[in-house]
Design a binder for these strands. Structure first.
Length: 569
RNA sequence: GGCGGCGUAGCUCAGUCGGUGAGAGCACUCGGCUCAUAAUCGAGGGGUCGUCGGUUCGAGUCCGACCGCCGCUACCA
């Protein structure tokens, strides 16, 4: 038994996440958490909402709410949607909670003591009308290079030229449109990543398990040279700096990218604090000097998050001088595109988590998304692929197997598992084939190779249909009732195994299949040897047909959804 | 502009250190079966591996150029 700490990139607070966000971090994290639990390991799965920063303030203002109320509301929305997608977090926390305030300030204090922080004066654009400093990209104006009128202060989207806000002609606030801007000087705390660079590189060098995408992103940044980075902001919404320790920046807050990953640890502390018995020990998962030395820590995220998780956050923990647990495996994902384009909130293109659940059950989405996950390259969402995943895999292969098996049992043997006949060579061969297919599936799961794992799981399902075709119980029942009994009892045993094997992807369906045998459940850990359990179902035990597991999607339905979600772009 | 990635059967994708006749699922064709949501099982057709050139006994796999698509480029997160 191993101990697995699993975190998924924290979803940002401003609104409902789309299916690309889901498949890039939260969903694979949950599939892995469920898999490792099913395999008998100890698992702690942590997630939280990332609540600080300018976009949260603006989104709250747009809805006429205080930012604290706004975050309360959307934290609840995201938690509920996560639960509806059957994400089995051990804890879903918030970066705005006191645990994160405390830990963020603690780590800042440690970094200061170790000499990795520095106060620097910076010049930033201040909007008088908005009464706030503007991040570069919130200043818009005409590009001096190409004349594009809606260039942003960091880069012109039209010609690609990198800009400073002061380069823009007719610069104005992207928030209010006001051109009453001025450059003001402001002190900020900088994390001296340049001093940490060699330690971070040595640590990255040791991460031989990381996938290619993760490693290449980390080395790209290291090779270009890590720059010192401002980790405070002139905002009101965030974690306030300690005015005693950092008087030069009193009244400012820590940068959201400084406090967000610390939120993984703080959310674990929330989890521990929430247990009144005091039986949960967060340090056992995060402190190498408090029992975390045998933890295997896996992070899940989209590729845009990789630099922060391979460089800045590890730099923060290494620089603290304290023995924090660092990530072991970092599984990163490319983008899920919608018919080749970006999922877009502003243009209404793509499918969002709340809409998705109105169309199909969570299990269908979980299966479609994971079997088409953007693991090695950007992956394309199309409704045809949704239809294929549901109709071919779930309905025709898995659902049909369970349905044809249970229909025949109910018809010929009633509400008990047939108990006559003895397994023979065909059953032993079947078990051997299942063991082999199951083994391939479990290997891919261990390696977090989700597309290969789903293909391998589908191959496991197929073995059931192949077996039925070979034994033809519908024919045997007419001449050799015992032979049909053995076949169908074996098929039920296989279905019970399939429920266990499929549970990481299809938790709800797995439960429904398992309910077929309410008195004879399978709870042994997932392993190739579990294939032997196929022949261990008790004949005569109570049997309940679960009914159809999945509904088919017809072409008209898919066409209607294609039309509805085409979006403005 | 810089950096990185991708371009393999109609579609979505695998192809580990370059090496027996280039793979899977879906779609398509043929056959079997009829218990099952016309589902299933078996067999088969289909690709000059973006283009051109190079290295090599041998390249989808390495090198160069070009064409096309995409991402990142550090105070949005």
């Amino acid at each position: 038994m191993a101990r697995h700490l699993i975190t998924s990139a924290l979803p940002y607070i401003n609104g409902v996440k789309h299916l690309g966000n889901l498949v890039g971090s939260m969903l694979p994290a949950d599939v892995s958490a469920r898999f490792f639990r099913a395999a008998g390991h100890e698992v702690l799965a942590i997630c939280a909402t990332d609540e600080h920063g300018t976009p949260a303030e603006l989104a709250a203002a747009a809805e006429g709410m205080s930012v604290a109320d706004y975050c309360d509301r959307y934290h609840d929305v995201q938690r509920r949607l996560g639960e509806q997608f059957l994400l089995s977090w051990d804890w879903f926390g918030r970066t705005s909670r006191p645990q994160n305030h405390e830990l963020t300030n603690h780590l800042a204090s440690r970094l200061k003591a170790e000499g990795f922080l520095e106060i620097r004066a910076t010049e930033q654009v201040y909007s008088i009308a908005d009464q706030r400093f503007l991040p570069d990209r919130y200043v818009i104006g005409t590009c001096p290079n190409c004349g594009y009128e809606r260039a942003r202060g960091d880069q012109c989207e039209n010609c690609g030229k990198q800009l400073d806000p002061t380069d823009l002609i007719d610069a104005r606030s992207a928030i209010s449109g006001s051109s009453a801007l001025e450059v003001r000087e402001s002190n900020h705390v900088f994390l001296r990543q340049s001093l940490l660079s060699e330690r971070i590189r040595a640590w990255v060098d040791a991460q031989v398990e990381w996938p290619q995408l993760t490693r290449s992103i980390a080395y790209k940044w290291l090779d270009e040279g890590l720059r010192d980075r401002g980790i405070t902001r002139d905002l009101t919404w965030g974690i306030p700096v300690d005015p005693v320790e950092f008087p030069e920046v009193a009244g400012k807050v820590w940068y959201v990218w400084f406090d967000a990953p610390i939120g993984y640890i703080a959310a674990t502390k929330e989890w521990a604090d929430a247990d009144p018995s005091g039986g949960r020990d967060w340090q056992r998962w995060w402190r190498l000097d408090r029992g975390a030395d045998d933890v295997r820590y896996t992070e899940f995220m989209g590729k845009d998050n990789v630099p922060f998780h391979t460089l800045s956050f590890p730099g923060t923990l290494l620089g603290s001088g304290e023995p924090w647990k660092l990530v072991d495996q970092l599984k990163s994902f490319n983008w899920l595109t919608y018919y080749g384009g970006k999922f877009s909130t502003s243009e209404g293109r793509g499918v969002f988590m709340d809409q998705a659940l109105d169309l199909l059950p969570a299990d269908c989405w979980r299966w479609f998304l994971m079997s088409n996950a953007p693991e090695n390259d950007d992956a394309n969402f199309t409704w045809d692929l949704v239809g294929e995943a549901v109709n071919k895999d779930l309905v025709a292969t898995l659902g049909n197997f369970v349905n044809r098996t249970t229909t025949q049992i109910s018809r010929h043997f009633g509400d008990a598992v047939p108990d006559t006949g003895e397994p023979a060579e065909p059953e032993f061969e079947f078990v051997a084939r299942v063991r082999s297919a199951l083994s391939a599936y479990l290997d891919h799961m261990e390696r977090l190779e989700f597309r290969k794992a789903t293909a391998a799981l589908r191959a496991v399902w197929s073995e059931g249909n192949t077996y039925l075709e070979q034994r033809e119980p519908w024919r045997a029942i007419k001449t050799d009732r015992d032979a049909a009994a053995v076949t169908l009892r074996t098929a039920v045993g296989f279905a019970r195994l399939v429920a266990s094997a499929s549970s990481p992807y299809l938790p709800e369906t797995a439960d429904r299949i398992a309910q077929m045998l309410p008195d004879d459940r399978l709870d042994a850990p997932l392993s190739p040897e579990l294939a032997d359990s196929i022949l261990e179902v008790s004949g005569g035990t109570r049997f309940v047909a679960p009914g159809l597991l999945f509904g088919k999607l017809d072409d008209e339905q898919l066409a209607a959804w294609t039309e509805r979600f085409a979006g403005a772009g």
